[in-house]
Nucleic acid binder design. Structure first.
Length: 782
DNA sequence: TCACCTTGAATTTTT
DNA sequence: TTCAAGGTGA
C-alpha cells in the first residue's frame, strides 16, 4: 500500500486527521464517505450494498478487498470476487493492485462466474463425467450440436428450430434446472412433448464430446457440490469472504451457486443496483436482489446514494423517472454538484431529422472544444444506428461503435480456432465438422453424411471414422483422396505442434490448409479485415505457454483489442452503455413502441415496462453534464413509415429539470462536407420537408440524378475505414491530384493533399488528421 | 458446387 | 428496408 499514500485526500477535516493518526495503516479508507466506509468495514455476515449510479461502487468493492487483506482477515487466495464480464474483473484487479500493491496477484479467485466455474470444474471434471481438458462450446457449436440432436430424434428442424431449443435450454440452465428438473409441462411445449428428451440427449452428446456450454460451467458446479458435499465444504472453507459485483444481474443458477458457497461462513457481500437491472430478458432475476434480506437473515443493507457523477438537474430527472417503478428497494440519489444544465427534450420531424439535429449539436459542441471522446449517443436498438452513422459520416464526425460481435464470435476466428482445436484434440467432432469443407475442398454434405453414419455406428469420433473410410471404397475416389490429404495434413500439424510454438503452428495450419488463401481470394469489402483479425489471433497466441492454455483462454475471455482512445464520438446501445459515463449523452428515439419497446411490453407486461424504465434511467445517469433526449414524429419500422408518439418516459420527467427545445427550422445550414452539399441538391429542402414519402422520393432522385457523388457516398457508408487499404485495387490511372491541393472527403471533410502515390493520396484533413485515402473517394475543391 | 432468387423475420447480449 | 437462410437451377 505504498502508491496510494501519496494520493491521500487532502481533506483537512478533524475526523480524517484523527482517524489517520489512530490507524495510519488504513490510509485507503480516508477518501471514502461514511456509507462507503461502512460498506467496506462491515466485513462479517451478509451485506447488501445498494449502490446507485455513480456512487463509487467499484471503489467500495476494491477497497473492501484491500481492507480484508490489509487487516489480515484473509489471504488474497481466500477471497472470492465475482464479476460478470472479463472487463470488470480486469479493472477490479488493477484497482486493487493500485490500492495495496502486488498482492492482487495472489487473488486467484477473482474473475467472472464462468471463469471461476471453469476453474473449479477442471479440478473435479471426472466427478461429473468430463475430462479435465473439456472444451467450452461457443454459441455456434451449440447450435450445430442441437441441430444434430433434433435431427437424430427424427424431428423436422424447420418446424422446431435449433435456435428455439437453444433458447429454451439456456433459460433452463439459467434457472439451475438440469434435464430431470424441468417441469414436464414446460419441457413438453417444444416439439410435441419431446423438449425434455432433446435436452437430455443434448447433455449426453456434450459428455460424449467432452464439452460443456456456458450454462454448464455453473450448472455442473451445482451438480458437483450436491453430489459431493465434501468438495463443497472444501470451497466453503476456502472462501472466507465472498464479493459479488452487479448482483442485480445474477440469474437463479448464479444465485444458487453463491448461496451454496456462502452457506457456511455467510460472509457474502453483494453490490448492485436494482434500478440498473436491465438483463431480465436473459435470465437475470431482479428478485435476487429484492429478496436478499429474506434469503440471508440478519443481512446488513447499506445504501450508497451520494452521486459523484452527474449534475443536479440530470440526477433529479433520473430519480423522479425511476421512482415511477413499483418493484424497487428505493434509493434517492443526491449530489452536491451544481444543478448544471437542464435535460433537454427535442422533437424532430422524423428519424433523419433527428440524426441531423444530433449531428449539428455535436458539431457545435466540438467547435466549443468539447472533446468528442466525451460524447455518446445511446440508442435503444442497433437499427437506430444506421441513420445516425450516415449522418456522422456525412459530417465527417469521427465515431466508434461500441459493442457488436465479439472478436471470438467472428466466423474467421471460429474457423481458425476449429482448425487448432482439431490439431490439439482430434476427437473434437464439432470443430472437425466445421472446417472439413472450409475452404471448399469438395467434401460436401454427401461425404459428411457417410462419415457421420460410420462414426455413429462405430461410436468413434469423426476423425477416426474418416481414417477408416479412406481405406475402404465407400467414398467416391475424389472425396476419398481429398479426405486422405486432409488427414495427412492434420497428423503433420499435430506433429509440428510438438516442436514449434503455438503461433508458428497456427500460422502453418492456416496457410497449408488454404484458409488464408480463401480470404485472400475473396473480394468482398471485409476480407481484408478478416485477414487482419487472423493475424491478430496468431499474434495474441504468443503470450501463452502452449496451445492448450490458449484455447482455454480464448473460449472464455478473448476479446478484441479496444485500445482505441482517439477522439471519437461513441455510439452504442443503452445496454452496452451500462457502467460507462460521458460529459454529454444524446438519447434519441424516445418514442412509444421503440422506447419503451413494444416487444418488451407485449412479452413481459409491467415487468417489461419497468425494465425499459430502468434502461431509461441507466441512459440518463450516464451523463455527467448534459443529457439530451430526442423523439421523432415519424419513424421507419421494417421499411414502413409510422407516425409515432413521444415516449411516456418523457412525461415521467419532472418539469423543473427539463427544457423543451424548439427544433431549429428544417433546413440545412453552414457546415462543410457531404452533408450540406447533399442537402443543397434537394430542391425546396426547407418547405418541402413535409412527408416521409416525399423524402424518400427525393432520396431516390438524388441517387439517380447525381450518379457521381451520392452513389459514392452510399458506397462508402459500409465498412468504416477499409477504403484506406489496398483492397480496392482498381487503379484509376493518373489521378489529377497534386500535392498542396484541397480536397473534400465525404467522411473526413476537407483537407490538404500531402503526398500522391498512384491513386493513393495522403491527406491532412482539417478535422480528422492525416489519412491515406483513394483518390476516387475525394473531390477536388476549387 | 455455386450463383441467384424467394422467403421470412426483424430488441437488448455476456460468458 | 435489410438481412440472412434456404431453395432452385445451371
Amino acid at each position: 500500500m505504498s502508491g496510494d499514500l501519496a494520493h491521500q485526500p487532502s481533506s483537512g477535516s478533524l475526523s480524517a486527521r484523527a482517524r489517520a493518526a489512530v490507524a495510519p495503516q488504513l490510509a485507503y479508507l480516508n477518501g471514502l464517505n461514511s456509507e462507503q466506509r461502512a460498506a467496506v468495514e462491515a466485513t462479517e455476515g451478509p451485506v447488501l450494498v445498494l449502490a446507485g449510479a455513480g456512487t463509487g461502487k467499484t471503489r467500495v468493492l476494491t477497497t473492501r478487498i484491500a481492507h480484508l487483506i490489509a487487516t489480515g482477515k484473509a489471504w488474497p487466495s481466500q477471497i472470492l470476487a465475482v464479476t460478470f464480464t472479463n472487463k470488470a474483473a480486469r479493472e477490479m484487479r488493477e484497482r486493487i493492485g493500485r490500492t495495496i500493491g502486488e498482492v492482487a496477484e495472489g487473488m486467484q479467485w477473482l474473475g467472472t462466474f464462468h471463469s471461476i466455474g471453469t476453474k473449479i470444474l477442471r479440478r473435479h471434471a471426472e466427478l461429473v463425467g468430463l475430462r479435465s481438458d473439456f472444451t467450452i462450446l461457443g454459441t455456434d457449436d451449440q447450435l450445430r450440436l442441437m441441430k444434430q440432436v433434433i435431427e437424430a430424434e427424427g424431428i423436422d428442424e424447420k418446424r422446431w428450430p435449433a435456435r428455439q431449443l437453444a433458447g429454451l435450454i439456456d433459460s433452463w440452465k439459467n434457472r439451475g434446472l438440469g434435464p430431470d428438473q424441468v417441469a414436464a409441462g414446460e419441457a413438453g411445449a417444444f416439439a410435441n412433448g419431446k423438449g425434455g428428451r432433446l435436452y437430455r440427449a443434448y447433455q449426453e452428446r456434450l459428455k460424449v464430446l467432452n464439452a460443456v456450454d456456458f450454462g454448464d460451467l455453473l450448472l455442473e458446479c451445482l451438480g458437483l457440490w450436491r453430489e459431493h458435499p465434501d468438495i463443497l465444504e472444501q470451497y466453503q472453507e476456502r472462501f472466507r469472504y465472498m464479493l459479488v459485483d452487479e448482483y442485480q444481474d445474477t440469474n437463479v443458477a448464479q444465485y444458487l451457486w453463491l448461496r451454496l458457497l456462502a452457506q457456511k461462513r455467510k460472509n457474502l457481500c453483494c453490490v448492485g443496483d436494482d434500478d440498473q437491472s436491465i438483463y431480465g430478458w436473459r435470465g437475470a432475476e431482479v428478485d435476487n436482489i429484492l429478496r436478499f434480506e429474506h434469503d440471508f437473515p440478519g443481512a446488513t443493507v447499506i445504501r450508497l446514494e451520494r452521486n459523484y457523477r452527474s449534475t443536479g438537474h440530470i440526477l433529479s430527472a433520473a430519480s423522479v423517472l425511476i421512482a415511477k417503478n413499483q418493484g424497487r428497494l428505493g434509493k434517492t440519489l443526491r449530489t452536491e454538484d451544481e444543478p448544471g444544465e437542464k435535460v433537454t427534450i427535442t422533437g424532430a420531424w422524423d428519424s433523419e431529422d433527428e440524426a441531423r439535429l444530433i449531428g449539428e449539436e455535436i458539431e457545435a459542441l466540438h467547435a466549443k472544444r468539447h472533446p468528442l471522446s466525451e460524447i455518446a449517443i445511446l440508442v435503444r436498438i442497433s437499427a437506430q444506428m444506421r441513420e445516425i452513422e450516415d449522418r456522422l459520416v456525412q459530417l465527417g464526425v469521427p465515431y466508434r461503435v461500441i459493442g457488436g460481435p465479439r472478436f471470438y464470435e467472428r466466423a474467421e476466428i471460429r474457423d481458425a480456432l476449429a482448425y487448432l482445436r482439431v490439431v490439439n484434440q482430434p476427437a473434437d467432432d464439432l470443430a472437425f465438422e466445421r472446417i472439413v469443407n472450409v475452404p471448399k475442398r469438395g467434401l460436401g454434405d454427401a461425404t459428411i453424411q457417410v462419415l457421420h453414419n460410420h462414426a455413429r455406428a462405430a461410436r468413434v469420433p469423426l476423425m477416426d471414422a474418416a481414417r477408416f473410410l479412406v481405406e475402404t471404397d465407400e467414398l467416391k475416389p475424389k472425396p476419398r483422396a481429398t479426405l486422405r490429404d486432409l488427414l495427412i495434413s492434420f497428423s503433420r500439424w499435430s506433429k509440428l505442434s510438438e516442436t514449434l510454438s503455438q503461433s508458428e503452428v497456427a500460422q502453418t495450419v492456416l496457410e497449408e490448409s488454404g484458409y488464408t488463401d480463401m480470404w485472400q481470394k475473396e473480394k468482398s469489402a471485409d476480407a481484408a479485415g478478416r485477414l487482419e483479425n487472423l493475424k491478430e489471433l496468431v499474434r495474441s497466441m504468443e503470450e501463452f505457454p502452449d496451445l492448450q492454455s490458449f484455447l482455454e483462454h480464448v473460449s472464455l475471455v478473448m476479446e478484441a483489442n479496444e485500445s482505441d482512445t482517439s477522439e471519437r464520438v461513441s455510439l452504442m446501445t443503452l445496454h452496452a452503455a451500462k457502467g460507462l459515463e460521458f460529459d454529454t449523452v444524446f438519447l434519441p428515439g424516445w418514442e412509444e413502441g421503440l422506447f419503451p419497446n413494444q416487444r418488451a411490453l407485449d412479452e413481459s407486461g409491467r415487468a417489461g415496462l419497468e425494465e425499459e424504465r430502468r434502461l431509461a434511467h441507466v441512459g440518463l445517469t450516464r451523463a455527467r453534464r448534459r443529457a439530451k433526449i430526442y423523439f421523432a414524429s415519424n419513424r421507419r419500422i421494417h421499411g414502413l413509415w409510422n407516425s409515432t408518439v413521444p415516449s411516456r418516459f418523457i412525461d415521467d420527467l419532472p418539469e423543473a429539470n427539463v427544457e423543451i427545445v424548439e427544433a431549429p427550422a428544417n433546413f440545412s445550414y453552414g457546415g462543410y462536407g457531404g452533408g450540406s452539399r447533399f442537402d443543397r441538391m434537394q430542391p425546396f429542402s426547407g418547405s418541402s420537408y413535409q412527408t416521409p414519402g416525399w423524402q424518400r422520393a427525393q432520396a431516390h432522385r438524388a441517387n439517380a440524378d447525381d450518379g457521381g457523388y451520392s452513389a459514392r457516398r452510399s458506397g462508402d457508408r459500409r465498412g468504416p475505414m477499409m477504403i484506406e487499404g489496398e483492397l480496392v485495387a482498381k487503379s484509376t490511372g493518373s489521378s489529377g491530384f497534386a500535392v498542396g491541393g484541397r480536397v473534400l472527403h465525404p467522411k473526413f471533410g476537407p483537407g490538404t493533399i500531402e503526398a500522391v502515390d498512384g491513386n493513393k493520396l495522403t491527406v491532412e484533413f482539417d478535422k480528422a488528421g492525416r489519412k491515406m485515402v483513394l483518390d476516387s473517394f475525394v473531390e477536388a475543391l476549387g
